[in-house]
């Protein structure tokens, strides 16, 4: 008894620092895993680039038309690319039992889902932001529109990761979970898609992007606050 009593008392004092350590470990762990399995996350990036690049080939090289469709095409491709990688957000950890271990941590499950979504965004969202300007040039977008495209993706892709985590948690362990995830989550992506693409449209047509970007930002804050709780609850139900 005595052997255990001492360290347990001291541990309770630094509760906030251990929560932070938990969150950072979740993120660091997923980044490290992605670094060890490079093929996995490059697939989603290549998918994004390929889908976007197919459109100029399909609809013809007319700059006016390309400029019109560019925001929508980039945004739709971004949502599909994020779905491609989301199916495995919790599935791999579920299979080898490490998800159970993480849920048995004294830290709340909300931090786990938040960390998982954050890591997903760092792995899949940031590279999208980096290649997006190149794709914008491919669609003959003016520079200010390219800037807003990147900005809208910077605000919007975290929403995709956060909402996607809810879907991934809900469909965990189900057969055909990938298809179900798509059906569940795509409708929820619609606001991000509309405001994100709308912002770039606004710059091109001259009406300005502020309104769309503010709404996108609000949607981001809302999902940042709400979705980790929902995914944590969904995760517990899926593991029962």
């Amino acid at each position: 008894m005595l052997r255990f009593a001492a360290p347990l008392e001291t541990r309770e004092e630094d509760a906030s620092s251990s929560s932070l350590r938990f969150l950072l470990t979740v993120i660091r762990r997923d980044l490290l895993l992605a670094a060890r399995r490079r093929g996995d996350w490059l697939t989603a990036q290549f998918f994004f680039v390929m889908v976007v690049s197919l459109f100029p080939l399909g609809v013809g090289p007319e700059p006016e038309l390309l400029r019109r469709i560019a925001p929508g095409v980039v945004w739709v491709a971004a949502t599909l690319a994020s779905l491609l990688s989301l199916t495995r957000l919790f599935a791999d950890d579920h299979r080898d039992g490490s998800l159970e271990q993480m849920l048995l941590s004294p830290e709340p499950a909300v931090l786990l889902t938040l960390g998982k979504a954050a890591a997903h965004w760092l792995i899949y969202g940031i590279p999208l932001l980096i290649v997006a300007p190149v794709l914008g040039i491919q669609f003959a977008l003016p520079w200010d529109a390219v800037g807003v495209l990147v900005l809208s993706l910077a605000l919007g892709t975290p929403i995709l990761s956060l909402l996607g985590a809810v879907g991934a948690a809900l469909t965990l362990g189900l057969r055909g979970g990938g298809v179900l995830l798509t059906l569940l989550i795509l409708p929820l992506y619609v606001p991000a898609l509309i405001f994100g693409a709308g912002a770039v449209d606004g710059v091109i047509s001259g009406t300005g992007a502020e309104a769309h970007l503010s709404l996108l930002g609000a949607f981001f804050v809302l999902s940042l606050i709400l979705t980790p709780w929902v995914s944590a609850a969904a995760l517990k139900v899926s593991l029962e």
Binding site: L33, R36, D96, G97, S98, Q101, L104
Partner: peptide, 15 residues
């Protein structure tokens, strides 16, 4: 905090 569990799956990452 006071409990540890080892299940059927080892809970370790192969990578």
């Amino acid at each position: 905090r006071e409990m540890a569990y080892v299940g059927h799956a080892n809970g370790i990452k192969e990578e």
